[in-house]
Simulated scan of single mutants.
Amino acid sequence: MDLPPDLYGRPRPDRFVQRLTAFGDWYNKPGRRPPAPAPARPTPELPLVVTGHEVIAAEVVELRLGSPYGAELPAWQPGARVQLTLPSGRRRHYSLCGDPADRSTYRLAVRRIEGGGGGSVEIHDGLSAGSRLTARRPRNGFAFCGEPAVLLLAGGIGITPLLPMAREAQRRGLDWTLVHTGRDAASMPFGDELRGLDPRRVVLLTDDHNGPPGAAELIAQGPGNAAVYCCGPAPMLAAVREAVPAGRPLHFERFGAAPIPDGKPFTVRLGEAGPTAGVPADRSALDVLRELRPDLPYSCHQGFCGTCEVRVSAGTPEHRDRRLTPEERAAGALLPCVSRAAEGETLVLDL
C-alpha cells in the first residue's frame, strides 16, 4: 500500500506510520490466533460486622450487618439473598428483609433449626455485636415484578423476602395483600411492622386456632387477578402451586431442596477406589455424599449457589442446576444438590 507523506511535510514516508502499518498488517494476518482473554477475576467477598443481634420472635434472631469501614453496602432489590460465610466456614443463604434504600445495613431474620446443618445455631449462639464474617454480593432469584395487583403468601420465616416486597408495593401504590401464616403469634416476626404499613392489607393466620389454612383459603385473601408470590415450607408451596389457576402469574421461593418427582436410583463413588453409595430415587446425591463426607460444604440445596460443587472423573451426569456454564460442565463440574444420573449409572467423583 502507498504510505502517506511524512507527518511533518518532509519528502519521505513517516517512520512512525511505517511501523504502525507493519504492526497492523501482522496483527490482522489471516489465520493468526487472537490473544486469549484474561481470566475473569472472582469478585471478592464483602467484609461485614454484626451491628445488631436480637431475638424478635420465638426461635428467631434478627441480624444486622454493616461494613466494618463504614462504607456503603452493594445495592439490592426485594427478593434478594446474600450468602454468608460464617466464622466456622459454613456458608448459608438468607433473604434480605430490610429496606433496599438503606445502604448502611443488611437485615436478616434467621429461625433456629436444631438438628440441621448448624448454620442457624451458629448464628443464634455464636454471633454477637462485633462479630466478623463475609458475604457474597446480593443475588436475586425471586425478583418482585410489581404487577398492579399482588398477593404475598408467607409461611413462617418465609416472611423475610416478602416483607420488602410489601414495602415496595405500598411505596408504588399497588393493590397488594400479604398473608402470613405460622404456628402461633409468638413465632411470627414482623407483625407490628407489617400492620404499620397498612393493617387492612395484612392478614395473620395461626395454626393454633383452626389448624393450618388451605391453599384455597390463602388465595381467596387477595384479588382474583393478583400475581401470587409465595415463600414457605414445601407442603405450602406444593398446595399453592396446585391451586393457582393456569395463566395466573406465580412466583415462589423454597426454603430448601425441591422434591424429586422423577428421580432414578444411581451410584456415587469417591475416587476410583473409594467408598461407593447408592443414591435413592427420592434423595439427592448431596445428602448421600454428606453421609460419607460430613465436611462437604453446601448452602442453597437448589443448584444456584455453587457451594457444593464437585468434580466428575467418570460417568455421565444429568445436570439440573442453574449455575454451571456448558464449559464448566464439560470440564467435569457437578452440583450434587440437584443434579443426578441415569438409572444404574455410577458417577466417580474427585473428593
Rank of each mutant, 00 (worst) to 15 (best):
P13N: 04
G70Y: 00
P37N: 05
G31Q: 12
V110D: 09
R107Q: 05
G24E: 14
P100S: 02
L20S: 11
R32C: 07
A22E: 15
H93C: 15
H53L: 06
S120W: 04
Q18D: 05
P37F: 07
P35I: 12
R12G: 02
P78D: 11
P44R: 14
N28I: 00
L20Q: 14
Q77G: 02
L65I: 04
A22T: 08
A129Q: 02
T21D: 10
W26Q: 14
S104G: 05
V121P: 00
V82A: 04
V50R: 02
A80P: 03
L65S: 04
G98I: 00
L96C: 08
P42K: 12
G66T: 00
W76Y: 15
V50C: 12
T85A: 15
A22W: 04
A40H: 12
A71I: 00
S104W: 00
P47K: 04
P35T: 08
G118W: 09
V61T: 15
S95G: 02
C97E: 02
A71N: 03
F23E: 12
P39V: 10
I113L: 11
C97K: 02
R12N: 05
D99S: 09
D102K: 06
E122H: 10
P44V: 14
G52Q: 13
P30Y: 09
P37Q: 11
N28H: 14
G130F: 06
R107C: 02
P68M: 05
R12I: 08
L20W: 09
E45D: 15
P100T: 07
V82Y: 03
V50K: 06
R12L: 14
R32A: 08
Q77D: 11
A129T: 10
G126M: 12
P11M: 07
P47F: 03
E62M: 09
T21H: 13
V17H: 10
Y27M: 08
P100A: 01
P30R: 08
R19P: 01
A75K: 09
R41N: 06
G89N: 07
G24W: 13
A57M: 08
G130V: 06
H93L: 10
R92Y: 03
A101H: 08
D25M: 13
D99P: 06
Q18I: 06
S88R: 13
R12A: 14
D25E: 15
L96Q: 07
R32Q: 10
P34F: 09
I123V: 15
G98F: 01
P30C: 09
P11E: 11
R81F: 12
R103P: 03
R92S: 11
R41T: 11
D102T: 02
T85N: 09
D25S: 13
